[in-house]
């Protein structure tokens, strides 16, 4: 047990690397927030554009969304980081991770919003249009409020799952929490920094996971 504690919970090591880990934690949080905002907004925009049913544009959206849902996020990240410089785009690792993960979240979010929009009954469109509201007004005042309600539980789960992928940014040298922990681990020859990082992730994501449970119950019960 002592050997275990010395290897995984060495307080002296932990104290030494705590400031570095906290720096990494902030990078992780910043990246996560950027990805959530960009991904959810872009996803909603795509779903709204898709509602206009313009054939060419819809094909493009579906194609984009399918590719980013089918490819592993790490593959996308690596391609962005290693292949984009060849065509002249030299983004930092942070920007690469931000853009790549945002596109992934946007794709999943678009599908969920779209499923929500199509699930709103046709009669809702007709009732609204019959009172003189335009297509866009109907979409925003009548259809989206109902669609978004339906989409909140799956969207929350998906957002958490994709935001956890910020840890993948360690592969492309972003100084987020996992990278810092791995560097410290190498220096200290001790696993305790990684334990700290794990605790850091729990601090961020456990409340969100519990929140998602609560949301699922609340929304399931309303129906």
């Amino acid at each position: 047990m002592d050997a275990f504690a010395a290897q995984f919970l060495d307080l002296e090591v932990m104290q030494r690397y705590l400031p570095d880990i906290i720096d990494g934690l902030w990078v992780t949080i910043a990246l996560a927030l950027l990805v959530i905002v960009t991904g959810l907004v872009l996803g909603l925009a795509l779903a709204v554009i898709r509602a206009f049913q313009i054939r060419v544009i819809n094909l493009a959206i579906v194609g984009f969304v399918d590719v980013f849902r089918a490819l592993p996020p790490l593959v996308i990240l690596v391609i962005f980081y290693f292949a984009l410089p060849i065509i002249g785009l030299t983004w930092s690792g942070f920007v690469c991770a931000w853009v790549a993960l945002s596109l992934v979240l946007a794709s999943f979010a678009e599908e969920i919003y779209w499923a929500g929009i199509t699930s709103v009954h046709k009669g809702q469109w007709e009732a609204s249009r019959s009172t003189g509201l335009s297509f866009v007004e109907t979409l925003f005042y009548v259809v989206l409020p109902q669609a978004v309600r339906l989409t909140i539980p799956p969207l929350t789960n998906r957002t958490i799952a994709i935001t956890k992928n910020t840890a993948l940014a360690s592969v492309i040298a972003v100084q987020e929490m996992l990278t810092v922990a791995q560097t410290s681990l190498a220096y200290a020859a001790n696993t305790s920094p990684l334990t700290m990082a794990a605790i850091g992730y729990l601090l961020i994501f456990l409340p969100l996971v519990i929140l998602s449970r609560w949301i699922e119950r609340k929304f399931a019960w309303k129906h």
């Binding site: 009954h121 009669g123 809702q124 007709e126 009732a127 609204s128 249009r129 019959s130 009172t131 003189g132 509201l133 335009s134 009548v142 409020p145 109902q146 309600r149």
Partner: peptide
Amino acid sequence: NRIRTHIGMVFQSFNLYPH
């Protein structure tokens, strides 16, 4: 849209906005 404000409609399935 302007014309429709002059023509009310009542549907079989009510179609009230649930939210």
